[in-house]
Amino acid sequence: MWKLMVRRIIIMIPQIVVLSLLVFMLAKAMPGDALTGLIDPSIDPAAIEAMRERLGLNNPWYVQYWDWITRALQGDLGQSFFFKMPVADLIGQRMVNTFWLSLATLILTYLIAIPLGIVSGRYNDTLADRLITGYTYVGFAAPLFITALLMLYIFGFQFGWFPTGGSVSPGSTPGSAEYVIDKIYHLLLPALSMALITTVSTVQYLRCEIIDTKQKDFIITARAKGASEQRVYHRHILRNSLLPIAALFGYEITGLIGGTIFIENIFNYPGMGQLFLESITRRDYSVMTALVLLYGIAAIVGALISDIILSIVDPRIRIK
């Protein structure tokens, strides 16, 4: 199994190199460069040229790429011209917020998916199953941003149960218990809105796995041993159906990236997604490229996590 993991991690290196190249090329292909936003139109063109030379913007692209990537590896992602601060510091704060939002969403996703999937798969073709699959169809069909807007309108504005923006109320002291509770309170509505939509594929997947496992021959073997229905379900069907779900965990991360961009903007939640959209509208290139790079790496790591989980839970892969 160690060999498999090492091999899998080595495969990741070229993936990330290609990703960084792509991100770099895209940034270069966009009109303007890192300097365009910084300068005042009244500055002498010769001074601009000198500044370009000093910043290395006149070097061939591969030299520029090399400079960029080595600096990025050292944690220097450049300066945000809009916020006039290092990109790394800027993203740092937002990343923490996005991390908590994603974690809350993941927890809620599984809290919804596992019971619904189990009920739906175990009692398939009953009324309960039809209601649950009905919900999943709606979930597949409804766009995330509409659901989120609806949730915000109903629970945020109409009922006023949840805050309608921000990640924490102004004036709370970081570190206090109220601060933590307030953070969670701000997280709940956006996380729930996202989870309600992203969970449907997991519900469906779990349902199919259970229905599939129910018909396997080893289930008959278990019954022939004298195992009760309850035991057959717990020891054989659920266990075998939940393991592939665990392996999907890494891919959920990829799904979250797209989701948080919408959700953070709708709920005005200060995370990476909101920053991403802002950086696009403000042409804040260094922030944008850094975020695309981070998102890309998150997706690659997500796939890695999935493969590793699968190799841990499935002995048929583990042995090889």
Partner: peptide, 19 residues
């Protein structure tokens, strides 16, 4: 089942829990 009567199946691979 399992005590008074036991069953032997045809396809031994699918009759055992793979995990």
């Amino acid at each position: 089942r399992g005590r008074e009567m036991g069953m032997i199946f045809q396809d031994s691979l699918s009759a055992l829990n793979p995990l």
